[in-house]
Nucleic acid binder design. Structure first.
Length: 276
DNA sequence: GTCCAGGATCGGA
DNA sequence: TCCGATCATGGA
């Protein structure tokens, strides 16, 4: 991997297989949108645009320094996914099939508060509407980054709001869950920063103390926010996969990269009619 | 009109 | 411990 700054942009060459479509559309993030061949997103408090120019990844509106300190980690660019795919493919033919069909998925390292909040909103909801609610949450309560874009609101900012204030984002019954999370995090009752170092079982127990956070939301937060690759979110789609292909297996079967296995299977089961 | 969405909570058996 | 009803909202 080679990182070069060029004016206001950064060009990253010699990177492994990486699909922006698969990575942004596999249900792990909600603030990236495609226009033409480019993805525009707000992440880590910054507004950027990413696309491929041939085999080179271009990130607009950033510097080589930020690429090294933020984007390599955010896109998980220094991890060798080929070795992981090879390893998890041995577990089952359907996992191998999923890895072959959609081989450019990467697990992002997102801000953990934003991830927690986003997946609280995700419960019993569909992806287009989740994106809409998060958009309105940022527009109304996030800090302005530039003329058109707003950062994800902090726990402190949200903790001061009432359910009535939140009506504008039309999140339904999830409004009180958002507030409980914001209050527990901003008051220090839940120390999100310390979760990164905890054994995963303790981390789960800690997260589910928040109202509206159950097993699924906790696993998503651990996987996409804390980059705990052994976290294993099971939603309605994964339940179908497990029922069909792994009826007698427990989570331990999927190993240290269970989260990556899950991501390939999730995307595969939802998109296999589009390929092969 | 009905069903469903990257679920969690609550009350009752 | 387990199960079903319920929770807002909006698109299919």
């Amino acid at each position: 991997m080679i990182i070069n700054g060029k004016g206001n942009n950064v060009i990253i060459s010699e990177i492994e297989e990486f699909s922006l479509d698969e990575t942004f559309n596999c249900g792990q993030c909600f603030r990236w949108n495609k226009k033409g061949e480019k993805y525009y997103g707000i992440a880590m408090g910054r507004v950027v645009c990413v696309y491929f120019d041939g085999k080179d990844l271009v990130i607009e509106n950033t510097t080589a320094k930020e690429a090294n300190s933020i984007w390599v980690k955010y896109f998980d660019l220094d991890r060798n996914y080929n070795i992981i795919k090879e390893q998890i493919s041995k577990l089952s033919p359907v996992i191998a099939q999923a890895c072959n069909s959609f081989s450019g998925i990467r697990i992002l390292s997102q801000d953990y508060w934003e991830t927690l909040c986003s997946f609280i909103i995700s419960q019993n909801n569909n992806i287009p509407r989740i994106k809409g609610i998060i958009y309105r949450l940022c527009e109304n309560f996030g800090e302005k980054i530039d003329e058109k874009n707003f950062a994800f609101p902090s726990a402190e900012a949200l903790s001061k709001l009432t359910e009535d204030d939140l009506k504008v984002i039309r999140s339904g019954f999830r409004d009180k869950y958002i507030l409980d999370a914001a209050q527990k995090v901003s008051s220090g009752a839940i120390d999100l920063g310390s979760i990164r170092e905890m054994p995963i079982k303790e981390a789960r127990d800690c997260l589910v103390k928040i109202k509206g956070v159950g097993p699924k939301v906790a696993e998503c937060t651990l996987l996409y926010g804390f980059h705990r690759l052994d976290a294993f979110p099971v939603d309605v789609w994964m339940k179908r996969v497990i029922k069909e292909f792994f009826p007698d297996k427990h989570m331990e079967f999927f190993g240290e990269y269970a989260g990556i296995v899950q991501q390939y299977l999730f995307y595969y089961i939802r998109n296999k009619h589009n390929k092969h």
